[in-house]
Design a protein around this nucleic acid. Structure first.
Lengths: 326, 326
DNA sequence: GTGAAAGCGCTAACAG
DNA sequence: CTGTTAGCGCTTTCAC
């Protein structure tokens, strides 16, 4: 692929004229314009963004770190982020961290090396790894440091909503399927659920899932569900895990919501496809995605972001896996 | 962030010594080594990959174009591609084309501008747009040109398998939910299904879906399903669309597989979460992902790839949305 | 072993 | 309006 100097020579103009033409910065006569246009056209020339970025000191790329792009909530989030970002001329550099500290911190280095304009990180496990650099970072779910903006659902309230709903639906014998312990956001859901239960003098049994990766869940965690049908209400830490739980019940011919009621968390699209469709606590993926991108873009543009902690309000989405008693 | 020259000065060595140290190319004395190491350590220096790439003439980045990352098959594919690629030191630049020609061709330019090492494109609608550049490209599903490697399932056979299975399950009154017409791969499924039916003197009714994006499907295409319960067997062009169809049946209280049997295509993870779980034609996402990356990596390394067309064998995955009659 | 210097492709003054 | 020139941060000869 040709470079700018070649284009200039071929068009019989100076290199900076070509630059001005391309960037629309400064005057270029009609004659030069026409000549340049022709040469670029036939040579399929595209300015090298790498060389460009070396100047502007960063590329128009946003690094997106998610645990696992095949989690429905995360991929819908990625879709939305990509949509907003591309409207603003930014592209997405996708990183699956696999919930693995090493992989995440390695990717931080890679992104740093590529001088990305900013990073959106989801359910991060790294702290100093981000602090060490001066790239704008916005974090969803995990709190990283004072300087880094956190966007998070009010997970405590979310857990509380989940409890209240199950309670209203008549459940008194509850179990909570809790998620990976390293994730603050997920632990908060657990706390909110349990504390609300305590207020009503109800104790909650716990089952621990170590991961929310489809394949691994199906293989490993299913055995922890053994006696789960002795409960009448279950709160699962997210929708995809809830899907696994529901699937398990189907296999065991346990009827939902007649015998057990189930509530998830996220309101990802998978909930609508389950049978019965999943009652869940929504953290609006639209809102989260937009908030994340907007905050990051501000940071990138050097504008101040007043709040260091942006809270998303959770709310109940009632479907068929629970039923109001009476 | 510091640059190499500053590191060199700080360490009291020449810039090229630092370069040699970092790239492990050529000798560096123990003394210099130690000094450089210290300076890099405390300054969090990361070499600028952009500047580097300007030399090597491309970055270690692979562009991935998919219609929609929230389609379960595509996001699982993306996960696998990212996994393989990152093992080889490549990262992923994610592009959602939205099945939109403009957006795809625009992204091709962006990727080109960033001098990505290669492109994996899924269900592409562009042709010349790729041919114009000399970046390695591997295409999944769509045939682009003679020069560009195509990886595709034998979709015709897949459609045929789908028919044969429904036939064996006793279905005689068939309808096919066909997908977007611009996608060759999807049309082939239709052809395979219909031709096999014709051999048995069975005619197949057709319903057309214009998209396979969850949200759009639910809103728009559902009305085309109106009279669908008059059939006893349905072949849907992919799993996520089949999920929509199944959901529709649930709402109408039509029993699967007792009243209608359903078969999908892809074997994406969503199939296992549906109720009843979805019988489908698998195009192994593992195999597809690996094949795609391997072929692209060969191209990137300048190795020859013997086959321009790599065929993936489809096969039946029997679950609960169909039943063998008898 | 090591540093100076040229150059990758581009941008941004700055004279003319 | 336009071309020359000096970098951006890095790699890579090539003398010392």
């Amino acid at each position: 692929m040709a470079n700018m100097r070649e284009i200039a020579k071929e068009a019989g103009v100076g290199i900076s004229t070509v630059s001005r033409y391309i960037n629309n910065t400064g005057y270029v006569s009609e004659r030069s314009r026409a000549k340049i246009e022709r040469v670029i056209e036939k040579s399929h020339y595209k300015p090298n963004e790498l060389a460009r970025a070396i100047f502007t000191r960063n590329s128009k790329i946003i690094g997106l770190l998610v645990p696992n792009i095949s989690n429905p909530y995360f991929n819908e989030l990625a879709l939305i982020i990509e949509e907003y970002a591309s409207e603003q001329g930014f592209s997405i550099f996708l990183c699956n961290t696999n919930d693995d500290f090493e992989k995440e911190s390695n990717y931080i280095n890679v992104l740093q090396g590529h001088r990305v304009a900013g990073i959106i990180t989801v359910r991060s496990q790294c702290k100093n790894e981000y602090a060490a650099y001066d790239i704008p970072v916005v974090s969803f779910e995990s709190y990283i440091s004072e300087k880094i903006i956190t966007v998070a659902t009010d997970n405590f309230t979310g857990g509380s909503l989940a409890f209240n709903h199950l309670y209203e639906c008549g459940c008194r014998n509850l179990v909570h399927v809790a998620g990976p312990l390293f994730a603050d956001a997920i632990s908060e859901r657990t706390r909110g659920f349990i504390e609300s239960a305590r207020e009503k003098n109800i104790t909650v049994d716990l089952i621990q899932f170590e991961t929310d990766f489809q394949r691994k869940m199906l293989e490993a965690n299913i055995k922890t569900l053994e006696d789960i049908e002795k409960y009448d209400g279950i709160f699962v830490f997210n929708d995809i895990a809830a899907a696994t739980v529901i699937r398990y019940f189907q296999q065991k011919n346990v009827r939902i919501p007649e015998e057990v009621q189930v509530i998830g968390f996220d309101n990802s699209y998978i909930g609508e496809f389950l049978f019965p469709s999943l009652t869940t606590i929504e953290q609006s993926v639209q809102e989260v995605g937009r908030t994340l991108v907007e905050a990051l873009l501000k940071l990138i543009k050097g504008e101040a972001v007043d709040q260091k902690k942006i809270i998303i309000k959770p709310n109940l989405v009632k479907r068929d896996s629970t039923r109001v008693s009476k």
